[in-house]
Design a protein around this nucleic acid. Structure first.
Lengths: 120, 120
DNA sequence: GAGATAACTTGTATAATGCAAGTAGCCCAA
DNA sequence: TTGGGCTACTTGCATTATACAAGTTATCTC
């Protein structure tokens, strides 16, 4: 969590951590869709590529937003989960959902998640 | 506002528009610090370079988040202002301020702005 | 031991960023 | 009327990040 920061501004620092086109989508997948595995993240409609995903999972782990654990004795399988810190990004994600739904045409959230996840 | 989108997800679409390390900082400067001119944006502590700034101002204008107007007869001077759409990003910015202040050490907002701008 | 699963790694091409310097239009004072 | 200052960019080039496709590795199952 003590990466290199461009300034003491909380917005700038937040962007230093999660300010790119992919990181928050991985967090979204964990937060709202319960995804936990590498292959599940690959399935998302945005189509992240494997090298970017591996890179993001590694830096999310280093930043303390995500925890990685082996999944039982099940082959090489890993489990990725949000830490408390990662989960605390929920209001940020939710504000983006609200803004996007209101202001960008043809955006929508999957029906089955609107009640379950508190996305609305 | 109808750029190319990776998916119908409101988070992904929002990130397609403002998901990089600089765009939201320009918006921050307008929203919380009342900056309106090219040189003022350059003064911010993060040190954006001129080509990136010109590029971001152009795309912000194309997206309809910012309006550009000539400043009276004052040489080549321009005024940049948030549109209503741009201003509607305030909750997103504020949620990042709150998260950053709580979770990233040594972040702070300038004192003089805390009451004036509704940043807290 | 052969095949399936799952999580990466590697290579290469393209695009974005960062840095320094230069350009261009307009105004004002000499 | 011209020369300098102000302001907003543009350009060139090196470095870094992204995108796409393919290959590799470790474990488990049969």
């Amino acid at each position: 969590m003590s990466q290199s920061h461009r300034s003491p501004c909380p917005i700038a620092c937040s962007l230093d951590l999660v300010g790119d086109r992919w990181t928050l989508l991985v967090i979204r997948d964990m937060m709202f869709f319960g995804k936990q595995r590498f292959e599940e993240f690959l399935d998302s409609p945005e189509g992240i590529s494997t090298n970017i995903l591996a890179n993001r999972l590694k830096s999310l782990e280093e930043m303390g937003l995500v925890e990685k654990q082996p999944y039982g004795s099940h082959s090489r399988r890993m489990n990725y989960q949000l830490t408390e810190l990662g989960a605390s990004l929920r209001p940020v994600l939710k504000s983006m959902v609200v803004w996007g739904l209101r202001n960008i045409p043809d955006t929508k959230t999957p029906e089955r998640n609107q009640s379950e996840t508190g996305i609305d």
